[in-house]
Simulated assay, not measured.
Amino acid sequence: MTKTLIKFFPFKQIDDFCTEMAYRKEEKYTKEMDEKYGDYALEDDDLKFIWGVKSWDDLSGSEANLYTMNDIDITYDKKKKEYMLGIETAYAFKDYASERNYLKRLLKDFEKYMDDKGLCKFMTRSLFMRDPYTNITANSIEELYVDFKIFVDGFCAQKRYEGELSDL
């Protein structure tokens, strides 16, 4: 039977002390960000939460923000001056059709956000004389949308299993 050292004196006390110090440091930072930006869950010195759709299995009880589990979200990195797209992929789907439906739903949610904000969904993207891949970071939300649409359309169009055709 294996025992960990953490259970024994003085290791337990050292661990408790380190945990308490980390908690206090985080609490102080949270308070500073609340005072500076109004809500640390939406903005801090490094990141600003732009938009997101909270995952069905998020247990936080709050609206989508930097700290919730979101199926899709957009965050602005202040230091790099770029937008980042986050997609929750920690799901096990029963089949490829379910995977496609999930991504299509996220794309529709993104399209609704674009429409609600009056952002252009018809921006073109040249793959020639550029890197021929889609990014999860971009200089604008419109660029993020185009890359995500290319990704979803390409994912949904692939023939994954023998005899299975895409429905695009």
Rank of each mutant, 00 (worst) to 15 (best):
D15E: 14
T68L: 12
R160G: 03
K108Y: 05
K28I: 08
M129V: 02
T75F: 00
K54M: 00
Y145S: 10
Y76R: 04
E142Q: 12
I141K: 07
D46V: 04
Y76A: 04
L119A: 10
L165I: 07
K28N: 02
C18K: 15
K7F: 03
F17L: 15
Y29W: 09
D57S: 14
S166L: 02
E99S: 08
M1L: 11
L165F: 13
G61V: 09
I50F: 13
L47K: 12
D116S: 12
L106Y: 00
D147T: 00
E88S: 06
V152S: 03
Y37E: 03
K117L: 06
Y40P: 05
A90Y: 13
N101R: 10
T137I: 02
F110Q: 10
Y29V: 11
I6L: 15
P10C: 11
S62H: 07
D34I: 05
K112R: 13
L106Q: 13
N139G: 13
L119G: 09
G86E: 05
I14A: 11
T124P: 01
T4S: 13
D147Y: 04
K28Q: 11
L47H: 09
A90W: 09
Y40A: 09
K78C: 08
L127K: 00
C18E: 15
D153K: 02
N101L: 05
F9Q: 06
A97S: 12
G118D: 03
E99C: 12
F93N: 09
F155T: 12
G118A: 04
K12R: 14
T4G: 12
V146E: 00
E164T: 01
F148V: 01
K54G: 04
V53N: 10
C156L: 01
E26V: 08
R105A: 08
N70A: 09
D39F: 01
L106I: 01
I74M: 11
Q13N: 10
K104M: 12
K159V: 02
I6E: 15
N139A: 13
L168S: 01
R24K: 15
I14C: 07
D115H: 07
G118C: 10
L42M: 12
D109T: 04
E164D: 09
F110V: 08
D39W: 01
L165Y: 12
K104E: 14
E162W: 08
Y133T: 00
A41K: 15
L85T: 00
L59W: 09
D15G: 03
I6N: 14
D39G: 04
E35P: 00
I136C: 00
D15S: 13
L119E: 03
L66C: 09
Y40S: 13
D116N: 10
D45I: 02
F8T: 08
D77V: 01
K80I: 01
T134N: 05
I87T: 04
F49Y: 13
Y96F: 11
N139S: 11
D16F: 15
Y91D: 02
V53G: 02
F11P: 07
D16L: 12
Y83A: 07
F8G: 09
D15P: 00
M84W: 02
A157G: 06
K159P: 04
N135K: 08
N70D: 14
D57M: 08
D15L: 14
E63G: 14
